[in-house]
Amino acid sequence: MDFFQAFSWVNIRFLFDGLMVTIQVAVLSIILSFIFGGILGVIRYMKIPVVSKIVGLIIDIIRNLPLLLIIFFTYFALPQIGIQFSIFGSAVAAMTIFESAMLSEIIRAGLLSVPPGQFEAGRSTGLSYFQTLYYIVFPQGIKLMIPPLVSQFISLIRDTSLAVIISLPELTHHAKIIYAQDPTAVLPMFFAMTLCYFVICYSLSLLANYFEKRLAV
């Protein structure tokens, strides 16, 4: 097969369907992990007796596990205790669990980077603890969080390809089906996957640079 013949309309449409699943998994995982990661990061930042230490221990365990193991756990192990997910749900759950642990540390570090005097100044004006966090500490810390947050989001997008192990019909899975039917399409499919991942991740990095400059003003 000629290089360009591999990009027939049927194959392009099939790859596009896989790309849409990749984007859906990534977007849902990013939103959920940012929410849960933010909650966990704030809990650790607040240093609540016992609770913060337990949360910290759980986060450290998850951060030191391979994402592939977590994907296997959500798809194969959780049904054994009555928690059943679809393939799509298992992928999103695994990505969310793993990324929440990663993001919680980034958010906690960003909050800790704000000088303590800023927090004390906010409290002295009559703001509550959470109002001080929301209006004073978080806006200053987010400037330092953006680069590592975006880097983690980009890693998440690339890591969606690991869900091919549970047959999630995402980009890599569909590309594998195409070149499994015709081995001469291996190079074109790898080129297509490379281009898709590059465009998504590079666009995200450009968007992050834009917001970082806006916040710096």
Rank of each mutant, 00 (worst) to 15 (best):
V21E: 03
K53E: 14
I58T: 10
A26T: 11
V21M: 05
L111G: 03
T96E: 02
G82D: 08
I30M: 13
Q84S: 14
L111H: 01
A109Y: 05
P115Q: 09
V92S: 12
L65H: 03
S52V: 04
M102I: 08
E120K: 12
L19Q: 06
M20Y: 06
G110S: 07
F76I: 14
G41K: 06
L111N: 01
I97R: 01
I54H: 02
F98Y: 15
I54Y: 01
I59T: 10
Y75S: 11
L112P: 03
D60S: 15
L69V: 15
E99L: 04
L69E: 07
R108T: 04
Q80W: 04
L78P: 14
L112Y: 05
P79W: 11
A91N: 08
S100G: 10
E99H: 07
T74I: 06
E99M: 11
S113E: 07
M20P: 04
P49V: 07
A94F: 10
F36C: 07
V42P: 15
L65V: 13
I70C: 00
F88G: 08
A77Y: 12
S100P: 11
Q80A: 10
I62D: 00
Y45M: 08
V114H: 07
I107L: 01
I107Q: 01
A91V: 12
P115E: 12
S113G: 05
I31H: 06
F36K: 02
V92E: 13
P116C: 09
V114W: 03
I35V: 13
A109C: 05
T96C: 05
V114P: 11
L68H: 07
E120N: 15
L32K: 11
G38I: 02
I43V: 14
M20A: 10
V27Y: 00
P66C: 03
V21D: 06
I43W: 09
M102T: 04
F73N: 04
G41M: 07
I87D: 13
